[in-house]
Amino acid sequence: MKKYILLLFFCVYYFSFSIENEIYKDRMRNFVKEIRNNTSKDRIIISQNGNELYFKNNGIDEEFFKITDGTTQESLYYGDVLKFNIATSEEMKNELLKLILPIRKKGKPVFVINYGKGEKKRDFLKKEALKTNLINELLPSFSLNDLYKPINGYNVNDIHNLNEVKNYLCLLNPEKFYSIDEYYQALKNTNYDLLLIEVSYDNVFFTKEQIEELKIKKNGGKRIVIAYLSVGEAEDYRLYWKKEWNKNKPDWIVKENENWEGNYIVKYWNPKWKEIIKQYQKKLDEIGVDGYLLDTLDSYSYFEK
């Protein structure tokens, strides 16, 4: 009898735990949906660090799938567990592929961000891309602060949507540049099809005119400009951060990210945080970016644990 009682307890506990975990995923899905509804229909949304959100009840979540236009995957082949230039374990790679291959097969572009150096790695990534139809790049550091040579080289083609993209730049930390003007000129003089970038420097944003100019590659072809936007963590270097939060943080700020100083996990379903993101989103729309790279979507996993 005791055995059956324990089994019943375990089943109830597991079922409750699974429901609780799904609640946090649903809250993030709903948040992304709100972000979509807060902007124009033609604005591009790319998800980052949250590919589990595309799945529900052992299959693709059709409703969420329609909300975004593309997704990314960090460290699929190189850079797992913050180990630069080290191959990701087969186990982890296969787990990630189980998520992103169905997403790609269903038609959504997947941009793979690897961390490492070397021509052999670049050749390997180029061959893998032919097998998987994923867009691989090899970034020279975890800092995401520099330009790099794309795996597939450049082209003069006009880029109208994400499915036409052959290469991309992911530059989210412009610290190595002396000013926003130098940063802007560096970006302007490139031929990447897609820019996944930080669009401000010391809280000074690119102008609408500069964003429009960045939409043209140096070789004259059109390209897409996507702005970085962290929605699962607050950053203490953003305009919205208040000085008093350094000592007394609001109750919707939970804790600092152990791996990234100055980044704080938030209760992303909190109305005050949502309003902050809405206003930041409004600023991005005003300067005319083509869309957003929504980062830290995987913050739900902190609350699940």
Rank of each mutant, 00 (worst) to 15 (best):
L229Q: 02
I211R: 02
R223K: 03
K274W: 07
S200K: 05
A234R: 08
N257R: 08
G116W: 06
F9P: 00
E91F: 14
K33F: 08
W241A: 05
Y13C: 12
F64I: 00
W273Y: 11
P174D: 00
K166F: 01
N219R: 10
L53V: 11
E91Y: 15
R238K: 15
E175C: 10
I44Q: 13
I135P: 04
R43W: 07
Y78F: 13
N155R: 08
N157D: 15
E52L: 06
K121R: 15
K126V: 02
V204S: 03
K274Q: 12
T88D: 02
I276G: 05
G262S: 10
T207Y: 00
L214W: 00
N133P: 15
L187E: 01
E213A: 10
N263A: 12
K106G: 07
I180A: 02
L53F: 03
Q73M: 14
R122D: 05
K282P: 04
D285E: 14
E198P: 03
S301N: 15
K215W: 04
I197T: 01
P174S: 08
F10K: 12
K305S: 12
Y14K: 10
G107C: 15
L297P: 05
D26E: 11
H160D: 13
N246L: 14
I23V: 14
P102W: 05
E20K: 09
I19M: 10
D69M: 09
E286M: 05
R43P: 00
I35K: 02
E304V: 12
A87M: 14
D290C: 07
Y115H: 06
G288D: 00
N246E: 09
L162G: 02
N85C: 13
E275V: 11
E63K: 13
K106V: 14
K282V: 01
D146R: 11
F84C: 06
N37T: 06
L125N: 00
D181R: 06
K166P: 04
W273K: 13
L6F: 11
L82C: 01
Y292C: 01
K208W: 03
L76I: 14
L99K: 15
D285T: 02
K217G: 02
D285I: 02
Y302S: 04
Q281M: 05
Y148Q: 10
K131W: 07
V204F: 11
K215H: 05
F205V: 00
V156D: 15
P140Y: 04
N270F: 11
R36S: 09
P271W: 10
K282C: 02
E164S: 03
I197C: 11
F9Q: 08
K105G: 09
T207V: 04
F10D: 08
N37P: 00
N38C: 07
N163C: 10
V204G: 12
I45R: 01
Y183Q: 08
Y168P: 09
N219M: 04
T132K: 12
N203P: 04
